[in-house]
Nucleic acid binder design. Structure first.
Lengths: 328, 328
DNA sequence: TATTTAAACGTTTGCGTAAACGTTTAAATA
DNA sequence: TATTTAAACGTTTACGCAAACGTTTAAATA
């Protein structure tokens, strides 16, 4: 690989002139400019991105930490973040925590060690104090999807309660269900508790009792919910609310396998994504987070925060949507 | 942010000693080591990752360029790559081309400018010559999923032909279909042509004619296939092969919307992912790429190539799997 | 005592670039 | 002709770190 010095020597100018030609930071006569560009072309010279970052302190890189890249919910948010920041010349460094606290701490540590200009975190932690020592003060951070206690940073959050409440209302008033079970996500996560609250509140408002065992605690990960559905079926639940999209997939699988007819023998309300409406909408009611909008907001906010660190802290809240099963 | 020099001054030693304490690269007496670590702790010092990379030339960063992060096929491959390389201390820089040649060229250009140690590309191009000027000679690159013409790099590829052939065989011999249509992906992509070849070959082997219009050219992106299904229905096709998973989703959506009964009025063979077996398997036959294995192989191969650039070029081929619709 | 040896640490350089600061040349003015 | 001015470019430094190279001290050997 050639360096700026090589270009300078071969074209008979100084490194300063080469730098200024490449960055348009000073006037250079047309003839000199061409001489330099010719040599650049001939040697196939490319400025070293690391050296440049080292000198300028800008990396043009934003980190994002998510619990599960292969879950479309996160993939969609990532995609939206990328779309926003790439318009401003930034790239995205994506890290996967596998919903594991230790992984998250490692990732935060290494990304905040000067690797990225800013960080978006969909945290698997519940309290910011677990994280505080890893984040240098003043480092631009935006939290995404999940609220932490004691967190002095920007947040972009969904409001799932209204759509879930509405969904349960639908199960009760229009489909006549009375025994409705609930499969939770990881209970340390704010969205899990919020969704459970929506369930409790809807059940209460319609005078339905939440019997022992109606609330089954899941962990948001694949295959964890199979036993939980069984438990709820044993309790003669005729409807089940599933707090998380991966577990909702599993629940559908299980019911299909057992020959239990969706929307006849049982009704489901679960988290989903827009694209799933294509094939899943006749099987269950969906509540869908505004993933793209959330990703966009987070991307925009981290850019704002990087540009102006003194900005007052913001909390951006975006509503989920309910899609009811069309009756066949 | 404090630097090594600050630590050195405050703890009364030289920068060399600080460096050696932090990296364990030279013996330092226990008392000195503790003095240094205490100051490091007190100042909350973190070595600057960029400066370190600048000095050592290692970035511990691998780039991956994919057509669509939010498509689970790619998300799964990405996840597998990340799992492999993170075991070796590498991180993953993910770029999205949106199946656009210009975006791909930009990403390749900027990633090969010293930002990453190696690059995995699921290319949207068809010929390596379009790319060759962007890739410095000797730069570690592994191509994933899609084969380019004239490409002198490692490749990790799926073999979809057997499973698709088998799927069409199933449609013909066990379900009795004779009028089978095909919706292609982007025809510049190697997987698209390979899948089409499987279709042609199965149709030919069973003496079925591919009538005018039976092959509808799609573009692999959402919503592009709606009109194509209509065309095939007009031609009285009773089975349709869909080359790409996103378009397969759309096809199911369309058929469901129109009240056309899957597996009764019409049969579908489409690309899918493992997780879809949960809810989609009763609606269509799936061929599923070994995404996780492919991602792992690509991750492993880029690590090998970085460590030993002289390795002979490899082509790793992994077979897709067919999942037939269970008859209801 | 003179010399060697090893332990422990310090001094310095250079990675490639951006840009502050400085220099040369010739044209423009006095 | 002497001085100023502006255009065009050169010289140098600093970014933070890793490590080659060098130094000091005291103990071990001759």
């Amino acid at each position: 690989m050639s360096t700026m010095r090589d270009i300078a020597e071969l074209s008979g100018v100084s490194v300063a002139t080469v730098s200024h030609v490449l960055n348009n930071t000073r006037f250079v006569s047309e003839s000199t400019r061409q001489k330099v560009l010719d040599v650049v072309d001939k040697l196939g010279y490319r400025p070293d991105a690391i050296a440049r970052s080292f000198k300028t302190g800008k990396k043009k890189l934003i980190g994002i930490i998510v619990p599960d890249i292969s879950n479309p919910v996160w993939a969609l948010m990532i995609e939206a973040v990328e779309a926003v920041i790439s318009d401003h010349g930034y790239r995205l460094l994506i890290c996967n925590t596998k919903e594991t606290e230790a992984h998250e701490l490692e990732h935060v540590h290494s990304l905040t060690s000067g690797l990225v200009d800013g960080l978006i975190i969909a945290s698997t932690l519940s309290d910011y104090n677990q994280l505080v020592s890893e984040i240098p003060s003043g480092f631009p951070v935006v939290f995404l999807d999940r609220k932490l206690k004691n967190c002095p940073h920007d947040m972009v959050l969904p409001s799932d309660m209204p759509s879930i409440y509405e969904g349960i209302e639908h199960l009760i008033t229009e489909e006549g269900h009375k025994r409705i079970g609930f499969i939770t996500g990881l209970m340390r996560i704010s969205t899990s508790t919020e969704r459970l609250t929506a369930y409790r509140s809807a059940m209460h408002d319609y005078g339905l009792t939440i019997e022992e065992g109606f609330i089954q605690e899941g962990n948001s990960m694949a295959k964890s919910s199979l036993i939980l559905v069984q438990n709820l079926l044993q309790l003669k639940c005729t409807a089940i609310v599933v707090s998380n999209n991966i577990m909702a997939d599993d629940v559908l699988f299980y019911l299909n396998e057992k020959g239990i007819r969706l929307n006849k023998d049982i009704s489901i309300l679960g988290q989903g994504i827009e694209r799933q409406r294509n094939y899943i909408l006749r099987q269950m009611n969906l509540f869908v987070q505004p993933t793209t909008e959330m990703g966009r907001a987070a991307g925009q906010q981290i850019l704002n925060r990087i540009k102006n660190p003194e900005l007052p802290i913001q909390q951006i809240i975006l509503n989920s949507t309910l899609y009811r099963c069309p009756q066949t």
